Structures are given as structure tokens and as C-alpha cells.
Amino acid sequence: MKINTTRFGELEVEKKDIITFKDGLLGFEKLTQFFIVDPGDQTLILWIQSVDDASTAFPIIEPKIFKPDYSVKLLPAELTSLSLENLTDASIYTILTIPQTVTEMSANLKAPIVINNKTKIARQIVLQDSKLEVRCQMYTDLKRYIVAYTSDDSVRTNVELTKQDTVTDTENSAPTGANQELNSEV
């Protein structure tokens, strides 16, 4: 099916890729159908685009990328509402806030989006953990991950480097693509 979007133009989306939020997203309860858009850049930021409203899309990211120790603990009723027995069959995303000053980017760790990968049923769930932040400053951690990931070919190609092949001066290598924007802000 073809879906018009304000941000990405007209996109071809398979029915199997439509994600259903029975309760919508917080503040957008009337919008219940979304799909994920990968803009294909190196920022690792995806977008969750509304099917119902061409102008509604939210930047999202997997929190494990910038916060490896992040974990989601759901109540049994929350797992049931997603038709999940455990989180192994789910994808977890956090919604980002990206202000004009990109270095002030933050992630909502308190209310992640949980998607059942098999059924495509999803919910934004407010977690009970009081230590989780609604505006977790994560720009520096994301930048560090992107620079490390794009600087190390063995990560992308699953090839182990010998000592003489290892690049030791990643600070002097020129950034490429979307990294230029992230690198230029710090």
C-alpha cells in the first residue's frame, strides 16, 4: 500500500509492516497505526510514522545502542496486552526529542515503545522504575557508539583484524555522511 508522508514523501508499505497501537501513543491516542521508516543514514535513528496522519512521525532509537544496561521490566498484564510471554519476541524503542541544538537530544527511557515482533501489536508503556528519565541526555553516548561502530570494520563485517590492520588513530579519520552532523556539534 502507498502511504503519503510529510517528512518522507510517498512510501510503499507492506501490510505486514503495519504496527497497531490499540491505545495510540501518549498524547496521540487517536492514531493507532504506524510503521517504522529507516532513513538509511548512519545515525541509527529510525522514525515511527503514522499511517493515519501524514504529518505525524516520531524519531525513535533502540536504547541499548546508547545505554547498554537499559532494561525493561513489564508487569504480567502488560505482557498479556501485547500477547507476549516474555520480551525475547519484542523490539524496544525510545522516542527521541531532537531540538535545534542537536547536542541537547534526549530519549524518553521512562515510556518506551514495545512492539511484539510476531503480531505487530505495540504499546507505549510507562515503566514503574522511578530511576528512569523522561529526558535522558544521550547525544554524547550515541555519538561515541556511532564513531566506534563506523570506525571499526570488524564490527560491520564480522571480520577480525590482525594487529597490523587495526587503525589506532580514529580521532584523525574524517567523518562521513550523517556522522558529519553529529561530529560537528561537539
Rank of each mutant, 00 (worst) to 15 (best):
V147Y: 05
E133V: 03
Q180C: 13
T32V: 14
G27E: 04
A57P: 10
I65S: 02
T97E: 10
D153C: 08
R7W: 02
I18E: 08
A54C: 04
N158G: 02
I95A: 03
E104V: 01
K2I: 13
L127I: 06
Q180H: 12
E160N: 07
E133K: 15
R135P: 04
K118S: 14
N4F: 04
R135S: 14
T150A: 03
K67G: 00
V102C: 05
T162P: 09
D41H: 00
F28M: 05
Q180F: 06
F66P: 04
D69M: 12
V167K: 14
M105P: 05
I18M: 07
P99G: 10
N117G: 11
N4G: 08
F66R: 05
N172L: 11
S130Y: 00
F66K: 06
N179V: 13
A54P: 06
V102F: 14
E10I: 08
D38A: 02
E133H: 09
E185S: 14
F21D: 08
S91G: 07
A111F: 04
L46I: 08
E85A: 11
L26C: 08
P175T: 12
L84H: 02
S71K: 12
V126A: 11
V72Y: 08
D153T: 11
A54I: 03
N158Y: 06
S130V: 13
Y145H: 09
D17T: 06
S50I: 09
L44W: 11
S83F: 15
L26T: 08
D169H: 15
L96G: 11
M105K: 04
N86W: 01
L26Q: 04
K143V: 09
L74E: 09
A107Q: 05
L31S: 07
M1R: 12
N158H: 10
I60N: 05
K73P: 01
L182G: 09
I48N: 09
T43G: 07
K73T: 15
Y145N: 03
N179F: 12
D129N: 15
V134W: 09
S173Q: 14
F21C: 02
D153L: 09
S151C: 09
I3Q: 02
R156S: 08
G9L: 06
G24Y: 04
T32R: 15
I61C: 06
L132H: 05
L79I: 10
I121L: 15
V167E: 13
V147M: 06
N86Q: 03
A77E: 14
Q180A: 12
T56S: 00
A111E: 13
S50L: 10
